[in-house]
């Protein structure tokens, strides 16, 4: 009982209540959107205009500013989904189920972007749109995991049961995440090794690194904004008969 202070427990219960969360999401959205746009503008200006061309790859390397943030987010969103799945299974928390399923299409979008921009970068640099190497194949499996989560949720009529099934799938699929991350070290791949996450000495110049980090941050804010829009929709769908939705409709007319 005394595990958490009472004020914490109250905070979580309040935030997780659908009407409170719906109102909070509406209030946060313009701020998230504004910060995201500012970061995007700075990142794009730095990446496409200020940063010099690469000494080996010329201007083609500028694809990195959408490719790498999207690939990072594809992993990040999946891990978040698995955490939400764990919370949903253990505590039967409705909001965790909603956040899990709301994250899936956005994560699938990031994965798709990572694959397509990687292909568009691979063609001029490697001479091939696609190669079956470990990094590319494991990222493709990630896309299928996301699509699996979306279609499994859609296929089960009762949404509480659907959320339970999807939580298990999200947790099982999380083994793919370290495989993607370490694939460039475990296997001899065509995909280049990490340039940024060697934090002691990143092999990328600061004028190229800064826009990359700005874009990564912009994508984080984008995810927060987009997941809240999906969550508002999913909450309305699930709770369309609840009193707070009736009040909401009444307030609009």
């Amino acid at each position: 009982m005394a595990f958490f202070p009472a004020s914490w427990t109250r905070f979580f219960h309040q935030t997780a209540s659908p009407p409170y969360f719906y109102a909070l999401a509406s209030k946060l959205s313009p701020w998230l959107g504004g910060i995201c746009l500012a970061l995007l503008a700075a990142g794009l200006y730095g990446g496409l205009y200020l940063a010099p061309p690469d000494y080996q790859q010329g201007d083609s390397y500028r694809i990195i500013y959408v490719h790498v943030p999207a690939a990072w987010m594809s992993l990040f969103v999946y891990v978040l989904m698995a955490v939400m799945g764990g919370i949903a299974l253990i505590w039967r928390m409705k909001l965790a189920e909603v956040m899990l399923i709301s994250s899936a299409p956005i994560g699938a979008g990031f994965t798709f972007i990572a694959l397509v921009t990687g292909s568009l970068w691979g063609k001029p640099m490697w001479g091939a749109w696609w190669v079956w190497d470990a990094r590319l194949t494991s990222e493709l499996i990630l896309l299928f995991l996301y699509l699996g989560v979306i279609s499994l949720y859609g296929a089960i009529e009762d949404k509480r049961n659907a959320a339970r099934a999807v939580s298990i799938l999200a947790l099982v699929g999380v083994v793919n995440i370290p495989i993607i991350h370490y694939s460039v070290e475990w296997w001899n791949t065509l995909h280049q090794g990490p340039t940024v996450t060697k934090l002691d000495k990143p092999s990328i110049h600061i004028s190229m690194l800064t826009p990359l980090l700005l874009m990564a941050l912009a994508f984080k804010f984008y995810y927060a904004l987009a997941v809240l829009q999906n969550a508002k929709l999913e909450l309305l769908r699930r709770e369309s008969g609840a009193q707070w939705v009736k009040n909401l409709l009444g307030a609009k007319t």
């Binding site: 201007d59 694809i63 959408v66 568009l120």
Partner: peptide
Amino acid sequence: GGYAFYVWTSYGIT
């Protein structure tokens, strides 16, 4: 630098 198609298609799709 001659990579217009690859770069701008990437940004467009993203």
